[in-house]
């Protein structure tokens, strides 16, 4: 009987995601908010560390930045606002995903350009190969006659 009660109590714990979230470090209301916080903090760079995001860093400035992210989330700010506020203070350096602007257009276009050039080259190879293909299968009358002779010679052997 006690085991049954324990099982019932235990199973009541499971769907209570919101209850368990009270225990999360920052104190979010829902798993979605916690996830959003994680996503934001993993896309922002700690300005002091050797290439770490603020989610994983132990540096004091990273903690300050995390706190600011949390507070702005509680105030209802959008992701753009939050990242923007940090960029305003610390510069583009803290953004791990560079903005698409004049400076970075070449960067973002690299895969497309590389693949594009490659496809053009391959297309060129295929087309040229086809052209050669086409030429080869057309014999002149003389070549055709010679081929016939050779083939009929072989048959007789």
């Amino acid at each position: 009987m006690r085991r049954l009660v324990a099982l019932i109590l235990l199973s009541m714990l499971l769907p209570l995601q919101a209850g368990a979230d009270e225990a999360n470090v920052q104190g979010f209301d829902s798993l979605q908010e916690e996830q959003r916080y994680r996503d934001l903090t993993s896309e922002l760079r700690c300005p002091k560390c050797q290439n770490q995001n603020i989610a994983d860093s132990n540096a004091p400035i990273a903690k300050d930045m995390r706190d600011r992210v949390y507070r702005m989330m509680q105030d209802g700010a959008s992701n753009e606002d939050i990242v923007g506020a940090l960029v305003d203070r610390f510069g583009e350096f803290v953004r791990y995903k560079p903005e698409v602007d004049r400076r970075t257009i070449l960067l973002w276009a690299t895969p497309a350009i590389a693949v594009g050039v490659g496809l053009l080259a391959v297309a060129g190879i295929v087309i040229r190969s086809r052209r050669r293909n086409g030429q080869k299968t057309v014999l002149t009358a003389e070549e055709q006659a010679r081929a016939d002779r050779l083939l009929s010679d072989k048959d007789r052997e």
Binding site: P47, K48, I61, D64, R89, F90
Partner: peptide
């Protein structure tokens, strides 16, 4: 509390 520092972008 480092509030002005934060707004200035002080990191170290």
């Amino acid at each position: 509390r480092g509030t002005l520092g934060f707004d200035l972008g002080v990191y170290g």
